[in-house]
Design a protein around this nucleic acid. Structure first.
Lengths: 114, 114
DNA sequence: TAGTATGTTGATTTAAAAGTCAACACTATA
DNA sequence: TATAGTGTTGACTTTTAAATCAACATACTA
């Protein structure tokens, strides 16, 4: 039942890299990698997870979420924008249709970026 | 600069209650309350903050946010609803108008409750 | 003025999270 | 069959967050 562990193992295998090599790159002990993969130990701290995401070139948010961690950046958003906590309290009640509307709004902001 | 500390002191004063009494009710040492209020120490753990919110009859989310803590409940929402992290990444870019739309959607769900 | 209530400070402790170290076991291969 | 590469396990350690304990200072009040 360790989503993160399984995912890590998969990524590592895909990239054909050993636990020792990965551990070196991340900056942790290789035995810890072993335990994370088997679910014996909980996922590492956020900075390590971000490094892993970089190494395997995956979205760090996704990896953090898989580790059941809230990206620290979110703290700023949640604590600084008043309406965000209110939004989060309602988020579980949104219907499909409502999510569609929200996604439309999100997409609008994405345009602004380029 | 300790938002939480100042807020706590204010609430406590309003309720005309001593640090010792409050500490007893919350289940922590009174000297800790003193340090929190002065900003010497960081706010207590989430469960203590929630107790404080109950004692003073204020919204616990607000108190947690003032303490720069993300309510643990949010973790479920953030990790379990796929679109929420995406939303949070965009949240800081929303315009007034966009927030108005979002609030409208939130209000719709509130109707469902009663 | 002795007692009671209040808040402050510095040193220390406890609990939880995040990790290391040492030792072993299996496999491949030179 | 030695040795290099890999993963596993159990006990221990380090780090950070969350607090306590002991001692004192100030004000109030019986």
């Amino acid at each position: 039942m360790s989503e993160f562990g399984e995912l890590l193992k998969e990524l590592r295998k895909e990239h054909r890299i050993s636990q020792r090599k990965l551990a070196d790159m991340v900056g942790i002990d290789f035995t810890y990698i072993s335990k994370i993969e088997s679910g014996t130990m909980v996922p590492p701290a956020e900075d390590k997870i971000i490094k892993i995401a970089e190494i395997f070139n995956v979205d760090s948010d996704k990896l953090l979420i898989a580790a059941n961690k809230i990206p620290a950046d979110f703290q700023k958003v949640i604590t600084e924008i008043e309406d965000v906590p209110v939004f989060l309290r309602s988020a579980s009640k949104f219907s499909q249709t409502q999510w569609k509307e929200i996604k439309r709004i999100i997409d609008e902001t994405k345009d602004n970026e380029e």
